[in-house]
Write a protein that binds this DNA or RNA. Structure first.
Length: 834
RNA sequence: GCUGACGUGGUGGAAUUGGUAGACACGCUGGUCUAAGAAGCCAGUGGAGUAAAAUCUGUGCGAGUUCGAGUCUCGCCGUCAGCACCA
C-alpha cells in the first residue's frame, strides 16, 4: 500500500463533498432535525487559531454522528464581524472597515474549510451585512416598542482607551475586557436594555436546560438575586421642614433589634433633604466629595480601611423599638444597590463590625446559637471579641434574643417572617427582591456597529425609524476615529444626522450611537435557520421546526456575557411571538483553552502559537482533528504536544495500512465480534456524552486487536471506518471508496448498530479474594452460582467454617483457617473472610 | 474572604452500582531493520523486591464506615475557576 498522502486526498474529498452537497441541511420540515451549533468566530486579521479548531471540530464530530443516525442536521457557520479591531485597522489605514472585514472573512472560510468540517456553507451569515443587521435593528425596534429599550442619563463605565461606554459584563475587575485599561465612571445619556426585567426568568429557566452546573451557578451569581425587606426609619431632628424617612434594604430583618446605627451611601440623595438639620454638614460634604472622586477600584478594594462621617444633629428611629440611632455616611455602602442605605448590625455582620470597631460604636447580640437565653444589653465590642467575630462572619442563623417578648426564642427564619408581617401591617416595611446585575448598557460611541434606529424629535421625543426604512445603513464617514467626547463618529456627518421626524415630519436628529458587538450574536442562531429570508428574521414555520439549538459548543469566556444576553433576546422574541421556545440552547458544552507547549497561553509574545494551517500542512486535518479530540476531556484545557500528535498520526497511518489485510468472506472470530460490538456501543455513547477521547481510546483498542489478524471481514472493516468517520472524515472516506467503489459517501451511510447479546462474553474473569485482597483470577463461564465457583476452586467449607482447599494458589492462605463469611457477587468476585 | 470543582505513574489521562487501580496514548529502556540516522516493527515500563518468581507497597495527608474504598463520611493540606464591601 502506498503511503497515505493527506494533502492530495483531503483536498479531493473536500471538493467532492462540496460538489455533491452532502452536508446541505434540508428545508424539508417532515424530517427529524438536529441543530448543532458552535460560537461563530470574530474574523480577526491573524486567522484561525487552535481554539477555533477545537470548537469547530467538536461540533462537527457530533453533527456527523447525528447525520449518520438519520437526522437532518443543521450545522452552520458564520462571522461575528462588527468590532474594534476592524475599526482600528480602518483608522490606521483610512480604509473602510468592511474591506478589512471581508478580506478576513474570506481568509477564515478558506482556513476553516481545510478542517474538513461538514458546515453547510450556503447558510453563512455575516453580522455586518446590511441584510443581516436589518434584523438586528428590527429586534431593537421590538425592544423599544415593548418598553425594554430606554434612554437614561446615568453614571456608566467608560473606557478611556476605547473611548466608549461599556456594559457591566464587559468590565473585569474594574478593567476594560478588551484593552485592560482602568474603567472610569462618566455621567452620560445612554441607551439601556431592561434585562433586569427578565432576571427571574433567566434564573428559573436554567432548571430546564442541560447545561454544566457551574455555568448555571455563574449566571445565577451574576444575576445575584437577593430576597429581603425594605424598612423605613423615621428621621428625628430639631429643625426639619418636613418629615423624612430613610429606607434601608436588609435580608436579615431578624437582626433589626441589634441595629445600632444607620449608614447612608455618599450618593444617597436624602442627604440633601436633611442638609439643614446636619450640624456638621461641611465635614459631611467634604467626605462625599472625596468618595465621589475615588475610582471604582479604590472603593471596592476589600483591603482598604473603612471610613465614614457621623451626621451630627439627626437620628433615625428604629420602628421596632423606637430607639434613637446614629446616622453615618460611609462609602462601604453602595449607592447603586438596594436603597443606598443599610441598617448596621455589628454583632451579626462582618462589615458593620469592622466599621463599628474603628469608630467605637456599640453592638448588641440578638441572635444566639442556643435558645435565646443570652441576656446581655449593649456592650463594648472589645468585651468578647472571639464570640462576636464568630457571629458576624457568614450567615449566622440561630434563635432570636434581646429582641422583646414578642420575638425572643423564635428561629431566625420564623422571626424574619413574623417581623415582616408586623412591618407590613404597620406600614413601615415591605418585601423586596434585589438583583446585583444592572440593565444592559447598549450604546457605543464607535463607528463599526449597527446604527441604533431611533430619531430624536423635539416634539415627539424618541421615534423609531419605520420598519420599511430598515436597514438603516451605516453612513460613509471621513474619519472613523472615536471623538472621545461621548459622541460617536457618526455625529460628525450632518447630512446623516439631520433628518425629519417619521411621526410629525419636523426636523429631527438621528441617534448617533451604535450597538455593542454583542448585538449581532444575541440572535444569530435564529438567522441560520432561514438565512436568506427578507420578509422576517426567519420564517415562523422554520423557527418552530429547528429551534431550540440541541447542542451548543463554545468557550468558557461567554458564561455571563453572550450566553446571558442571547437568552434574554430569545425570551423577548418569545414574548413577541417570534420564536416558539423560551430557552434557545437545550444543551451547552464548554471547552477550556489549549495552551502552548510551554504551558503558557498561546501568544505571539511567547512565540508559542500553534497555527492550524501548519499542523494540517504537516500531518493533515484528520490527524489534527483526532489529536485535539484525543488530548483529554473536551471540557478541560490542555497543553499542546508535538510528540503526542505524532502518536495520533501513527494511529491514522495504521488505519491506512489496514488496506493491506486480506479481506475474508468468512465471519470474524468470536472474540473480535464481541470487541466490535462493544466498540460500537462505547463509541456511540461516548460521542453522545462528548467524551471523544475515550471513544478514540476504544477505537485504538479495536485497531490494535485487528492489526494482529491476518484477515478481516469486509463487514468489520466497513464498520470500523464508519465508527472513525466523525473524527477522521477524509481517510475513512478514501478507504471506504477503495473497498466499495462507486458507493455513496461514508458520511451519509447508516451508523452501525450493536447487538447487546454479542457484547456479553461467555467467559469472564472472576476475582477470588481473601479479606478483600485479590489473590487469584479464574476464567469461568458467566452466570455461575457461589456453589459452582467453590466447586471450580476445589474448596469445601463446612457449616462451622472449616475449610478443605485444593486450589494451589489459595492453599497457603486458606489451609487451616476458619472461614467466617463468604461474600459472593455474581459474575464479579468472591471474597473469603477469615 | 466567600462559593464551586478537582487532587490517580515521568506526562496527558482511564476506571457503570464501592468489587482486577493505572485502559488508551506520550515519554523512556532494550531489541530488530540500516553504512548511519529518521520512520517502522517487537518487547518492557507505578515503586520496593527477586536470577526469575513469590511477596510487600501504592490514587494529596490523617482518621472513619465496610468483607472490600480512587470511589462513601469527617478533618486538614494543595490546585484551579467564579464572585468579590450586593447588607
Amino acid at each position: 500500500m502506498k503511503k497515505y498522502d493527506h494533502k492530495k486526498i483531503e483536498k479531493k474529498w473536500q471538493e467532492e463533498w462540496e460538489k455533491q452537497e452532502i452536508y446541505k441541511t434540508s428545508d424539508d420540515l417532515t424530517k427529524k432535525k438536529f441543530y448543532t451549533l458552535v460560537e461563530f468566530p470574530y474574523p480577526s486579521g491573524t486567522g484561525v487559531h487552535v481554539g477555533h479548531a477545537k470548537g469547530h471540530n467538536a461540533v462537527d464530530v457530533y453533527a456527523r454522528y447525528k447525520r449518520m443516525n438519520g437526522y437532518n442536521v443543521l450545522i452552520p457557520m458564520g462571522f461575528d464581524a462588527f468590532g474594534l479591531p476592524a475599526e482600528n485597522f480602518a483608522i490606521k489605514n483610512k480604509k473602510h472597515p468592511s474591506e478589512f472585514t471581508q478580506e478576513n472573512i474570506n481568509n477564515f472560510i478558506k482556513q476553516i474549510k481545510k478542517f474538513g468540517c461538514s458546515f453547510d456553507w450556503s447558510r453563512t451569515i455575516d453580522t455586518t451585512d446590511p441584510k443581516y443587521y436589518k434584523w438586528t435593528q428590527w429586534i431593537f425596534l421590538k425592544l423599544f416598542e415593548m418598553g425594554l429599550a430606554y434612554e437614561k442619563e446615568a453614571p456608566i463605565n467608560w473606557c478611556p482607551s476605547c473611548k466608549t461606554g461599556l456594559a457591566n459584563e464587559e468590565v473585569i475587575n474594574g478593567k476594560c475586557e478588551r484593552c485592560d485599561s482602568n474603567v472610569e465612571q462618566r455621567n452620560m445619556k445612554q441607551w439601556f436594555l431592561k434585562i433586569t426585567e427578565y432576571a427571574e426568568r433567566l434564573i428559573k429557566d436554567l432548571d430546564d436546560v442541560n447545561w454544566p452546573e457551574y455555568i448555571k451557578t455563574s449566571q445565577k451569581n451574576w444575576i445575584g438575586k437577593s430576597e429581603g425587606v425594605e424598612i423605613e426609619f423615621n428621621v428625628s431632628a430639631e429643625a426639619l421642614a418636613k418629615a423624612e424617612k430613610i429606607t434601608v434594604f436588609t435580608t436579615r430583618l431578624d437582626t433589626i433589634f441589634g441595629c445600632t446605627y444607620v449608614v447612608l451611601a455618599p450618593e444617597n440623595k436624602i442627604i440633601d433633604n436633611l442638609k439643614s438639620s446636619i450640624t456638621n454638614i461641611s465635614e459631611v460634604e467634604k467626605y462625599i466629595e472625596i468618595a465621589k472622586n475615588k475610582k471604582d477600584l479604590e472603593r471596592t478594594d476589600l483591603n482598604k480601611d473603612k471610613s465614614g462621617v457621623k451626621l451630627e444633629g439627626i437620628f433615625a428611629i428604629n420602628p421596632f423599638n423606637n430607639e434613637k440611632l446614629e446616622i453615618w455616611v460611609a462609602d462601604y455602602v453602595l449607592g447603586s444597590y438596594g436603597t443606598g442605605a443599610v441598617m448596621a448590625v455589628p454583632a451579626h455582620d462582618e462589615r458593620d463590625m469592622e466599621f463599628a470597631k474603628k469608630y467605637n460604636l456599640k453592638s448588641k447580640i440578638v441572635i444566639s446559637k442556643k435558645t435565646g437565653s443570652i441576656d446581655s444589653n449593649y456592650f463594648e465590642l472589645s468585651e468578647d471579641e472571639k464570640l462576636l467575630s464568630e457571629m458576624s462572619a457568614g450567615n449566622y442563623d440561630g434563635r432570636v434574643c434581646n429582641s422583646g417578648k414578642e420575638f425572643n426564642g423564635l428561629t431566625s427564619e420564623q422571626a424574619r417572617r413574623i417581623m415582616l408581617e408586623k412591618a407590613e401591617k404597620e406600614g413601615f416595611g415591605k418585601r423586596k427582591i434585589n438583583y446585583k446585575f444592572r440593565d444592559w448598557l447598549f450604546s457605543r460611541q464607535r463607528y463599526w456597529g449597527e446604527p441604533i434606529p431611533i430619531v430624536h424629535c423635539e416634539k415627539c421625543g424618541n421615534v423609531p425609524v419605520p420598519e420599511n426604512e430598515l436597514p438603516l445603513l451605516l453612513p460613509e464617514v471621513e474619519n472613523y476615529e472615536p471623538t472621545g467626547t461621548g459622541d460617536s463618529p457618526l455625529a460628525a456627518i450632518d447630512s446623516w444626522v439631520n433628518t425629519t421626524c417619521p411621526k410629525c415630519g419636523c426636523g429631527a436628529k438621528r441617534e448617533t450611537n451604535t450597538m455593542p458587538q454583542w448585538a449581532g450574536s444575541s440572535w444569530y442562531f435564529l438567522r441560520y435557520i432561514d438565512p436568506k429570508n427578507d420578509k422576517a428574521l426567519a420564517s415562523q414555520e422554520k423557527l418552530k421546526h429547528f429551534m431550540p439549538v440541541d447542542i451548543y459548543f463554545g468557550g468558557a469566556e461567554h458564561t455571563t456575557v453572550h450566553l446571558l444576553y442571547s437568552r434574554f433576546w430569545n425570551k423577548v422574541l418569545y414574548d413577541a411571538g417570534v420564536v416558539s421556545v423560551s430557552e434557545p440552547y437545550k444543551r451547552r458544552v464548554q471547552h477550556g483553552l489549549i495552551a502552548g507547549e510551554d504551558g503558557r497561553k498561546m501568544s505571539k509574545r511567547w512565540g508559542n502559537v500553534i497555527n492550524p494551517d501548519d499542523v494540517i500542512e504537516q500531518y493533515g486535518a484528520d490527524t489534527m482533528r483526532t489529536y485535539i479530540m484525543f488530548m483529554g476531556p473536551y471540557s478541560e484545557g490542555g497543553i499542546w504536544s508535538t510528540t503526542a500528535i505524532n502518536g495520533v498520526n501513527r494511529f491514522i497511518n495504521r488505519v491506512w495500512l489496514l488496506q493491506d489485510k486480506e479481506i475474508s468472506s468468512d465471519d470474524d472470530d468470536k472474540e473480535t465480534i464481541t470487541l466490535l460490538h462493544k466498540t460500537i456501543k462505547k463509541v456511540g455513547e461516548d460521542i453522545e456524552n462528548v467524551s471523544y477521547h475515550t471513544a478514540l481510546a476504544q477505537l485504538m483498542i479495536l485497531l490494535n486487536h485487528i492489526s494482529s489478524k491476518e484477515k478481516i471481514s469486509k463487514n468489520l472493516f466497513k464498520t470500523y471506518l464508519q465508527l472513525l468517520a466523525p473524527f477522521a472524515p477524509h481517510i475513512t472516506e478514501e478507504i471506504w471508496n477503495n473497498i466499495n467503489p462507486n458507493n455513496q459517501s461514508i458520511h451519509i451511510s447508516t451508523w452501525p448498530k450493536y447487538n447487546e447479546e454479542l457484547i456479553q462474553e461467555e467467559d469472564i474473569n472472576f476475582v477470588v479474594s481473601i479479606n478483600g485482597k485479590m489473590r487469584d483470577i479464574i476464567k469461568i463461564n458467566k452466570d455461575k452460582t457461589q456453589d459452582d465457583i467453590l466447586e471450580a476452586l476445589q474448596i469445601k467449607v463446612d457449616s462451622v467454617g472449616n475449610v478443605d482447599v485444593h486450589h494451589t494458589k489459595l492453599i497457603s492462605y486458606l489451609e487451616g483457617q476458619n472461614i467466617k463469611k463468604i461474600i459472593f457477587v455474581k459474575n464479579k468476585m468472591i471474597n473469603f473472610v477469615i
